[in-house]
Design a protein around this nucleic acid. Structure first.
Lengths: 208, 208, 208, 208
DNA sequence: TATGAATGAGATTTCATTCAT
DNA sequence: AATGAATGAAATCTCATTCAT
């Protein structure tokens, strides 16, 4: 029984990986389900046992990959020898980590960013990957622990994520208006401004 | 000859319009070229006389529609009874105008924003619609006429356009994190901050 | 499984037959794959499961039909009440049998003889119909059993087949320079001359 | 007026040449009329002013090229320093000349020999190239001038032409059963046999 | 004569999906 | 659960032919 379940999981996994590689290399439109199953070494019918259609597997993949990006960045942040202090620095650290990852993996960027970042995160929620909500809470947690107090936190995070996602995408991909390394200072400056604009004037009441 | 050229233009126009309506209503993937030509009332071969394939006409359409959006907004700005003064107010006016238009035309938003705004503007350049470059110059012109001086103007405009496009898209479409009307103040505040951050300290030398 | 394989074979067979009838009646150029599948009562996709394109099925058909022609002739030869003795008589018997068949089936002649006989036999080899090589051995066998000895047997058979195929084709189809029945004596005389010219002077050493 | 007619002729000529090159390089099936006119630098409609369709121009080309082959061979024969004496040697000279030409121009062989030689000569008659009939008379003339007398001359020539055409085609193209240089002796021996078999026993009555 | 835009039938091919095994 | 043959709708694209200019 354990073996059967294991097998099932393995099949799904293989389909996942095959689809990912094909989407990355050929694009979604030119990837046929027959390509995916062929690469995965399973029968066509099997695909439909696990996924509704091509777009189903794509959405799940985007969600998965996006989440992975954030998780890896957060992990790196936490494992930094010199602890990074403050929401501002932490956010920019994560942002920077993700950007650097995507610079080295442009196909992944391309794949994810057809549904831009926020869309991807949304689909994380929709597809119900475990730990999705937890993840948003990781951010909230970072906000709460900061020495400043913030209002409209949702709006703030949203604005930052959209700006970084959209501008980063273009800068990495097209080196326009500047290559990403040169654009980073501008991007991070804007992020700092947005964060600042959400800080309350009243000094933060220390949590007890 | 005049007649032939006229006819050619009309054919292309009809194809354009038919494709647009179908893309808007059924989506690109579900729109077949046969649908387009049927709706346009021309032969299938005629389509291939003017466009390479479905994606060719889509790109040209996105470029066209995006440009139109900006043009209409600029026109409204210029025709405002009470002249809008200053780059900041002018940019926000245009932004606001476009947003309001798209709120009333969500299908258009959906259509354009698969390639997000900057991508669309890029394709304007690529497809070489007339007045494309001129258009960018309209912005530069607005910048130059402002009482403040700005540095890294390209970067500034890029950042604003990306932010507005990406955040606006999500806010209008998903009312997340807030419906657009409630999000606007935040968006515009961020825009003002970005503009401000690009202003040079030295007071502007008046042009003579 | 047996059922599936049976079905597969039947499908292919049906496609074969439908294609043949259409090629014969309408010609290859005017036969569309849609015609073939329609006549065969299978889906269009099914065709591409078995054949690369129109020319693939045509080549296989030509090979098949040519082989059939030779086989039937050989069979008739073997079943003749009065055994036909000697390579010369046997070859002419087969030749005559094939000609008589084709006279009654001009469309078949037309179909096969776009690739003329040798070409057809060549494609038999290429397409790897079973029993192809065996077939050539049937001839060699006839040569070996003859009371005369022959040199350059390959060349001899080739020359005869080419002459008969090419001249026969024209004579049957266009009755030029003579209708086939009147041309036969000339043709067979030439064949005898060619055979004779390949006979070795030394009397054959009887096999023991 | 002369100029107009000249121009007309030039257009037709250009179409001819373009079609020939394309047929030779891409094959007839893959050559579109649009290819031909494009290469010729004339409008599509113009093609239909001169030819019925693709097959019309093909037939005329085959006829033309075949005739040219024979003419060139005959010319070479006549210009040989050491006059070639006797029908037998003359025929083989011509045959050999054509074969040598085609060995160096396999595409031409391929093109012509879809309609094999006799078919091509037939189409010469059908398309009514000038000098076609004359050409047949050239052969008859050669026959008449020979020191031997022949019966069934039509049949004789036909048999020889078919044999040489068909066997030569395969030998040149596929080097089967032997490369043409090695096959030639066999071919010419057969030709001599066929000629011999048509000679009347009675010595020829000298023409007066 | 000459043009070439327009036609539109139809060719080939793809592929998501089904379903009998 | 797994298979993969079969389906057939539909997609893209080609191209011979026409006809208004």
């Amino acid at each position: 029984m354990g073996k059967i379940d294991e097998n099932k999981k393995k099949k799904k996994e293989t389909l996942f990986n095959s689809a990912y590689e094909l989407f990355i290399t050929k694009g979604i439109n030119s990837t046929a389900i027959s390509d995916i199953v062929e690469k995965a070494g399973v029968a066509k019918g099997t695909f439909y046992l696990y996924f509704k259609d091509k777009y189903d597997i794509r959405n799940k993949l985007i969600a998965h990959k996006t989440l992975e990006l954030f998780r890896t960045a957060k992990l790196a942040l936490d494992q930094e020898s010199e602890p990074v202090e403050g929401l501002e620095e932490q956010l920019i650290y994560i942002m920077n980590h993700i950007i650097d990852t995507l610079v080295l993996n442009v196909p992944l960027l391309n794949f994810i960013s057809k549904n831009l970042v926020m869309g991807a995160l949304r689909s994380v929620l929709l597809t119900g990957e475990r730990a999705d909500h937890d993840f948003y809470e990781v951010f909230l947690d970072m906000v709460m622990k900061d020495k400043y107090e913030y209002e409209d936190v949702d709006v703030m995070l949203f604005t930052i994520v959209e700006l970084a996602g959209s501008a980063g995408y273009n800068s990495i991909l097209y080196e326009e208006p500047l290559p990403i390394e040169q654009y980073k200072p501008f991007l991070y400056r804007s992020v700092r401004l947005i964060l600042d604009s959400h800080r309350t004037k009243t000094s933060k009441t220390p949590k007890r």
